[in-house]
Simulated assay, not measured.
Amino acid sequence: MKLYKIETVQYINSTIEECWDFFSSPKNLQTITLDNMSFEIQDFDEKRMYPGQIITYTLKPLLGIKVSWVTEITSVKDNDYFIDVQLFGPYKLWHHKHFFEQTENGIKMTDVVHYSLPFGFLGRIMNKLVVADKLKAIFDYRRNKIDELFNSKNTAV
């Protein structure tokens, strides 16, 4: 099994509490996901993130093909980090860590994703041809959307 890793770092102009409040709510995931992926939460218990929480959603990650995804929040430390893993979905493995750290430059948000694709050799080819670029586009969109939401405060008087 080939394991891939994505790591992104972004500084957010916010308090740790405001940042945590936004990112610990599964409802906000749709806000930071590309519109053309048709992301839609199907079921979750409307509570703040907690270990063991299950979130189900559908999306169209490639070629307009609708897929179901079931995520479990496996670990949470308020204002510090949370971890989600895919229980069912398009990946053989998806493990996503989200870290939040107060710094002099704002909140340092670090995402670390480890993932693997099914189908062995064919999965490795798909990663090289399509998946890695699609994931880059998804995280680039998130970066821009988070900048828009948190780092583009109106400074006009």
Rank of each mutant, 00 (worst) to 15 (best):
D140Y: 01
V9W: 00
I12W: 03
K153I: 03
T56L: 05
E104Y: 06
L34S: 02
F82A: 03
D35I: 00
F121A: 14
L149F: 08
V130G: 00
R124N: 15
L93K: 14
G89C: 03
K27P: 04
T31D: 09
F99P: 00
V130M: 04
T110V: 10
M126A: 15
F100W: 02
S14V: 10
V130A: 02
E72S: 00
K5I: 15
N79T: 12
P90A: 13
E40A: 06
R143E: 12
K92R: 12
V67M: 09
D78S: 06
D43L: 15
Y141Q: 03
W94S: 14
Q42C: 07
M37G: 10
F150N: 02
G120V: 11
I83E: 13
V113S: 07
T155P: 04
M37C: 10
T58H: 08
Y81C: 02
K128F: 15
V76W: 00
M109K: 00
I138P: 12
D21E: 14
S75C: 03
I55F: 00
T15I: 04
M126W: 04
P118H: 12
D133C: 00
M1W: 07
I83W: 07
G52C: 09
N28T: 09
F39G: 06
K108E: 11
D78L: 01
D133M: 02
L34H: 02
V67I: 13
N154H: 03
Y115W: 11
H95V: 05
I125L: 15
M37P: 15
D21V: 00
F99Y: 05
V9T: 14
I65Q: 03
S24W: 01
K27M: 13
F150M: 07
D45S: 08
Y4E: 10
L34Y: 07
F100Q: 01
R48K: 11
V70C: 08
N151R: 15
L117K: 08
T15S: 14
V130P: 07
G123N: 12
N127Q: 04
T15G: 11
D21F: 00
M1G: 10
T56E: 07
V70W: 02
P61G: 07
